[in-house]
Structure formats: C-alpha cells, structure tokens
Amino acid sequence: MLQAVFFDLDGTLADTARDLVEPILAMRAERGLEPVPFEALRPYASMGARGLILRGFGVERDDEAFPALRDEFLARYERAMLVHTRLFEGMDAVLDALDRAGIRWGVISNKVERYVRPIVAGLGLGERSVCAIGGDTTPFAKPHPEPLLHGARLAGVDPARCVYVGDDLRDIEAGRAAAMRTVAAAYGFCGVESAPADWGADHLIDTPLQLLHALELARA
C-alpha cells in the first residue's frame, strides 16, 4: 500500500526555471555580454547555480572565478525566488488527489533548505507538505538516499511504500538507493547529460497528471 509520495522541487513540483535563469541574464547584461535565450539555459536549472553558471559564463565549479559568481547569483535569486515560480500545470490536481486518498506527500530538494521552505510556503503548500527538505538538511545531498530516508522518517512511513518523483538522474538514483519506487518527470528541466528514459525509473511521465495513472489514483 502506498503511504507517501515525495517530490523534487525544481522542475518536478514547480516550474522555477524563470526565476533561476533571470539572475544569469541580469549578470550577463551588466557585464555587457550577449543575451542567452531562456530555452538554452532552462535545462541547466536542474543543476542549480553550478549548471547555470557553467552555461551562462563557461565557468566550472573549480575555477577561481566561480565562488564570486555563485555568491552573486544566489544573492540575486534569494531576493526574487517567487516572481515567476508556479506549480506545474496539473500538479495542484495531483496533490488534491493524494490528499483525498490519505497519502502523505512532501518536498525533498537539493536546493538549500532556507530557499526550499519559503518557496513551498509561497506556493501555499507549507501546511499540507509533511516535509520541506533541502540539500543541507541532512549531512548528505542526493543522489545519497539520506534526504529521502529522512523525509520518510518525518512522515512516519516505510520507505519501501513510498514513491520519489524527480526530473534528474540523481533523483532516480537517490530513490532507488532509498528502496523507493521512482518516477522520472520528463516534463521537467532534466539536464543535458542523459534522457529521462535512460535513467531506469520505474515510471516515466510527460505531465504531472500522468502521475495519477502511475500511482493508480486516476479516476475512471
């Protein structure tokens, strides 16, 4: 029996891409650099600051210029995290269906917790979600299973009776390591390194509403 469903935040539960990309666009403009199309940056949103800075400036994490760019990016992002961010279309119906079925659900992201909590609250989900876990909530981040296992403990559920939904290979790896059933959200950001169909998830969905069919919660 399914006891809980846990969601990655960026690119799975909510479309946060525009708010993640805008700081990079502004930083490039202030430096006199040519604009980069939003669609070229969107896939890198799944990689957070590291991926967006790599695509936006060609700077790797071990480059000496990276820390300053990261700090500027994060400061800009923290000031405007909920300007364009919205639940993906159909996700509200998914959450309502989980609530009706008495299935707990929560958010487990690699974004730091001080960003995760206000975003979840700003989306009006703070009282409904059983957890809002960030990449720094536990000593480990995904693909390590500990954030997912911590979510299961907070929800008081058996990990083997849980599902984890994510739009990145690390999400599926973390879900498998936590002994959870996994769902790859192909509608999300999904990165550029491999296709969601190749991640080995138990289910592959192209829209949030397809999750209801994967969980056998869809109404006839």
Rank of each mutant, 00 (worst) to 15 (best):
G126F: 14
H213S: 15
P43L: 11
D71H: 11
R100V: 00
H150V: 04
F7R: 08
V163I: 09
L204S: 01
Y187P: 10
G106V: 02
E30C: 14
R128F: 12
A186W: 11
E72W: 05
V36T: 04
W199D: 13
E127R: 10
W105S: 05
Y187S: 04
A201T: 03
L20G: 02
N110L: 15
M1P: 15
M180K: 10
R31Y: 06
E127T: 01
L215N: 06
V94Q: 01
A132P: 03
A132I: 02
I24F: 06
N110D: 11
F189H: 05
E39L: 00
A29R: 13
D63G: 08
R161C: 10
G175L: 01
V192W: 12
V5I: 14
E22T: 11
T207Q: 14
A174I: 07
W199V: 03
H84M: 06
I205Y: 00
R117E: 04
G58C: 02
A186V: 05
Q3H: 03
M180G: 02
G200N: 15
E146G: 02
P37I: 00
E173H: 09
T137E: 01
L54R: 03
M1D: 07
L13S: 14
V165H: 07
E173C: 12
D62Y: 14
Y187M: 03
V192L: 09
E60M: 09
L169S: 04
H203D: 14
W105R: 06
G56A: 00
E193R: 14
W199F: 07
G156L: 08
A29W: 13
S129V: 10
R42T: 04
L209N: 11
E193A: 12
L154T: 06
Y44H: 04
E22H: 12
I119Y: 15
R79W: 10
A197P: 15
F7V: 11
V130T: 11
D62K: 13
W105T: 03
L212T: 07
L82R: 09
A121G: 13
M91V: 15
R176H: 10
E34Y: 08
A160Y: 14
L52M: 02
V163Y: 14
R181L: 10
L54H: 04
L20T: 10
E89S: 12
A155W: 14
L148F: 01
A97I: 01
P118L: 02
A155D: 11
C131P: 00
D19N: 07
P67E: 01
Y187W: 09
G124N: 07
L54T: 02
T137L: 01
L74G: 00
R176V: 11
V5E: 14
D92H: 09
E173N: 07
M91E: 04
E89V: 05
D62P: 14
M27T: 04
R86W: 08
L69P: 02
A195Y: 12
V112L: 15
D92P: 10
G166T: 09
L41Y: 04
G106C: 05
G106M: 04
I133M: 00
V5F: 15
